[in-house]
Simulated scan of single mutants.
Amino acid sequence: MFARKQLRKFGISDDVVRANVKAGRWQRVHRGVVALFSGPLPRSARIAAALLYGDLPAALSHRTAAQEWGWWPVDDGPIHITVPYGTSALPQAGVVVHRSRAFKKIVVSHDPPRTSRADTVIDLATAEPDEASAERTLLSVASANRVGAEEIRARLAARPAYRHRIALDRAVRLLGEGLTSMLETRYFLDVERAHGIPRARRQVPVNAFGRKLLEDCSYEATGVPLIVRLDGRTYHSDAETAFRDRRRDNFAELSGTARLVYGWQDVARTPCAVAREVMVVLRREGWQGPTMRCRKCLGP
């Protein structure tokens, strides 16, 4: 995969390029970019062509960077690249071009070059059409892929001109308060926030039988001794974790603390049912705050 100006340096004229393309030996991929082979373009060639078209420096970003980081499955969609602000590259078939004034700060040295993990999260969030979607995307992508709040906060400070600023700053604060997994994020968004349930304290330390353990969600700040445990099987299947969870269960029972346990299927498929059960315990223990019905509760 070559840019035509690269070929000229090797003494290959534009006439030779045109002749080879016309003969079907080579193929024009983008304006000024040629593949020195015929047939379908593998993903690596499509990526190389997009970066060459961006007229280096250019870097993979947004959805394509997320795929290269291993967060999302690879597809046949367009390649997203980011170029420095002022670059003349325009969108082409198969290439989405983004521009950044902070290009030098957001790109990491990699093969192929791409935006940093934190900047990829930010790009995906700022591309959303509204603040609610931007906040959900930042929380979901960051928590699912272990991109920390401090890392994202530092990147936001380095690139202050970004969309949905209030929503993203709020999302980073929530990450910093203990949303450490996709399951915890979905519980917060689809159970607590969507139904007006008071926000629990996250990752609350408890001293159970001489061991310091962390509870996922504690509602003691509302005056209700209720623990909600979010049982993500990926992190709760080994013997040591199972032993830890039993100790937490026993400690909660002995201390008179109500507890509810939910997994991914509960929160992802039936968040309204989960919310109703949490509200039953909150009401039973005397909490009288307002709640609400979400769009799923109201139905079509």
Rank of each mutant, 00 (worst) to 15 (best):
R43F: 12
R43Q: 14
S44C: 14
I47H: 13
A48P: 13
L51Q: 05
L52E: 15
G54M: 09
D55H: 12
L56C: 15
L56R: 15
L56H: 15
A58P: 08
L60Q: 05
R63P: 06
T64K: 00
A65W: 07
Q67V: 07
W69E: 07
W72K: 08
P73M: 03
P73K: 08
V74H: 03
D75P: 10
D75F: 04
D75Q: 11
H80G: 05
P84E: 07
G86D: 14
T87A: 13
S88M: 07
L90W: 10
A93I: 15
V95I: 15
R99Y: 07
S100G: 08
A102I: 03
A102P: 01
K104T: 09
K105E: 12
V107E: 00
V108E: 06
H110V: 04
D111Y: 06
R114W: 01
T115L: 03
S116I: 08
S116H: 07
S116L: 03
R117E: 09
R117Q: 12
R117C: 02
T120D: 04
T120K: 03
D123G: 11
A125Y: 00
A127F: 02
D130H: 10
A132E: 13
R136V: 01
L139W: 01
R146N: 14
R146G: 14
G148P: 07
G148D: 12
E150N: 08
E150D: 13
E151M: 12
E151S: 13
R155Y: 03
L156W: 02
P160F: 02
Y162T: 04
R163V: 10
R163G: 12
R163A: 14
